[in-house]
Computed example of a mutant assay.
Amino acid sequence: MTEIKAMNGIKTIRCYDDFIKSLFMTGMSMGGPNDEHVFSLCNFFGDEIEWHTEKPDTDPWEWRMRVLNERDDIAYGKLFFKKSGYITKDWFPYFYAARRDKTSLEEAYAEGKISQPAKLIYEILKEERTMPLHLLKSAGGFSKENKAAFERGLTELQMKMYITMCGQKRKRSEKGEEYGWSSTVFCLVEDFFTEDILEEAGHIDGEAAFWKISEQIVRFNPKADPKKVKKFVLG
């Protein structure tokens, strides 16, 4: 059995509950391996942890939806390097402040910081509040030919903290019967966390937020490359 050296209180992760405790200790983590060499709790997984076994207690792939279905204090989505990641409620206001810095999507679009596909997706969610991926794609008129633009828009909005994943939902036939694989459901960030979380973010200076997150990362990975840390924080 592999034992992993504890770092600042993080011990070997052997199950979902261990992962949650460690996540609240760190506040953030890549969803997969630490390929960018910034920070991932995957570095602390013990031998018990196995991907894609569908075992809810020891399969990290199952944990993505468990945090969304069972909790209201952890965000999950494409958050770091256009890859999956987790951010706890306590740290979300700092990322929100660092990446958005009180800029609305309309302002960001006018400044050329948001693409047209991303704006379209956002407007649909602003109207519908929540929507599964397959219906969102249909509502936006995205075909197979512009699938890549749709996926880039979704990632862009998650990275810039405008939308987030909020669960899963299966497709329904004309008879109302569920079928096929579950589809990821998205919503606006404003509809995911309670109002006080985003209100807190509004009182945090973007640059101060950047340094606070950076210090937390270095606490758990003193060897992190400053350039990679900057990209991790700012998206």
Rank of each mutant, 00 (worst) to 15 (best):
F45Q: 01
L133S: 13
V38P: 01
E215T: 11
G112A: 02
T26N: 06
L188R: 09
M25R: 14
Y86M: 07
L154A: 02
T58G: 00
G140C: 01
W181D: 13
E200V: 04
K175G: 05
L79D: 01
F39T: 07
D205T: 07
I20M: 10
Q116G: 00
S214C: 08
R64L: 09
G141F: 13
G206N: 10
G167A: 04
I49P: 00
N69Q: 07
A149R: 13
E48Q: 12
F95V: 05
F92M: 08
R66V: 00
G180E: 08
L23D: 02
M30K: 04
L133Q: 13
T26A: 08
I4R: 06
D35K: 11
E48D: 15
E48F: 07
L125V: 11
K147T: 01
F95N: 02
Y109A: 14
F45H: 01
I163A: 03
E151N: 14
L136W: 07
C187F: 05
I217H: 06
I204T: 07
D57K: 11
Y109K: 15
K228D: 09
L133W: 10
E156C: 01
E156F: 03
E106F: 11
T12D: 08
Y179M: 03
S173A: 03
R170D: 07
A139N: 05
G32F: 09
S40T: 10
F44N: 00
K227F: 14
T194Y: 06
A149G: 02
K228V: 10
D72M: 04
G27Q: 07
K160N: 13
A75R: 08
L120T: 15
A224C: 06
I124V: 14
S182N: 09
E107H: 12
K175M: 03
R66E: 01
T58P: 01
G141V: 09
E177W: 09
W211H: 15
M28F: 15
S29W: 09
T164I: 12
A118C: 03
R152S: 10
K113V: 01
L120F: 07
W91T: 05
C15N: 15
F19M: 05
K223Q: 13
S22P: 02
T2F: 12
M161A: 11
M165K: 12
P33C: 08
K169S: 12
N8E: 14
I197G: 00
W91N: 06
D101W: 10
A110S: 15
M1N: 09
A108E: 12
I20E: 03
P33R: 13
